Amino acid sequence: MERKDFSSWLEGPPQLNSQRWPGEHLGRPEKGPGSIGRLPSRLGAICIDWALSMLLSWWLFDLGDLATLGLFCLGQIVGVGITGHTIGHRIFGMQVQSINGSAVKPLQGLIRSVLLCLFVPVLIVDKDQRGLHDRLAKSILVKIR
């Protein structure tokens, strides 16, 4: 038996999350290019993408609910799967990347987009502010400027 076996409670509870900012343990900077895209930018980007989908749906399909969701999903699949970002992401200076910083593959974009359209995975986030849709697609949304 050692002293620390009896007095470890004096040091307080163990630190479960010793990370100082989202993405630190992934090697991402706290701010600037390569840092994790934060909630206000994410919300702004998704609102722009949804508004564009609604405009297209209004023009083409008389604003049908499933048509709007389908256009949104298609925009996500094409945008994220090919270029790494949608129009909303681009406006807010963000890009979806693989965990290692490389471009996402089309299959990753497809998985991420379909899960995003289910909405529930977006609400389940980890300490790096990555939603379930990003974790399952092995992707991350980062700032590019």
Rank of each mutant, 00 (worst) to 15 (best):
A67T: 03
H85Y: 05
H25W: 14
F119M: 15
L52H: 06
G37Q: 07
G109I: 08
R42I: 01
R20T: 05
W58Y: 09
L26Y: 03
G64N: 15
C47G: 10
D134S: 02
H85V: 01
M94N: 02
T83Q: 01
K4I: 15
L66V: 06
Q97N: 10
S113C: 07
S57G: 06
G12E: 13
F72G: 01
S35V: 11
H25Y: 12
H133V: 02
G131F: 04
S41N: 11
Q15R: 08
L116Q: 10
S8Q: 14
C47D: 07
E11Q: 14
I48W: 09
G88W: 01
W58I: 07
S18V: 09
K127M: 06
M1H: 12
L115W: 12
F72W: 02
I144K: 07
L110K: 06
T86F: 02
F92W: 05
D5V: 14
Q76D: 02
R28T: 01
G23S: 08
V104S: 11
R112S: 11
P106F: 01
D134G: 01
S35M: 03
L115E: 11
G34W: 01
R3A: 14
E11N: 14
G27K: 11
V125E: 15
W50A: 14
G70D: 03
L43Y: 08
T86G: 06
T86P: 05
L39Y: 08
S98R: 15
S53C: 09
R135A: 07
L118M: 15
W9C: 04
Q129G: 00
K105C: 05
E11T: 13
L60D: 06
Q108E: 12
K31W: 05
P13D: 15
P29G: 12
N17R: 13
R112G: 08
R20E: 14
L136Q: 06
I140L: 04
D65S: 08
P29F: 02
F119Q: 07
S7F: 02
L69R: 09
L69M: 00
Q129P: 02
F72K: 02
R42N: 02
F119D: 05
E2W: 05
F6Q: 11
C117M: 11
L26G: 05
Q129F: 00
E24H: 13
R145L: 04
E2V: 14
G32D: 04
L118K: 07
L74G: 11
G64I: 03
P22D: 04
L132M: 13
V120R: 08
A103K: 14
L60K: 01
I144P: 06
D128N: 03
L43S: 13
M54V: 13
L56D: 04
L56K: 04
E24A: 15
W58F: 11
I82H: 05
G64D: 14
L107W: 06
S102F: 05
C117R: 09
G93C: 00
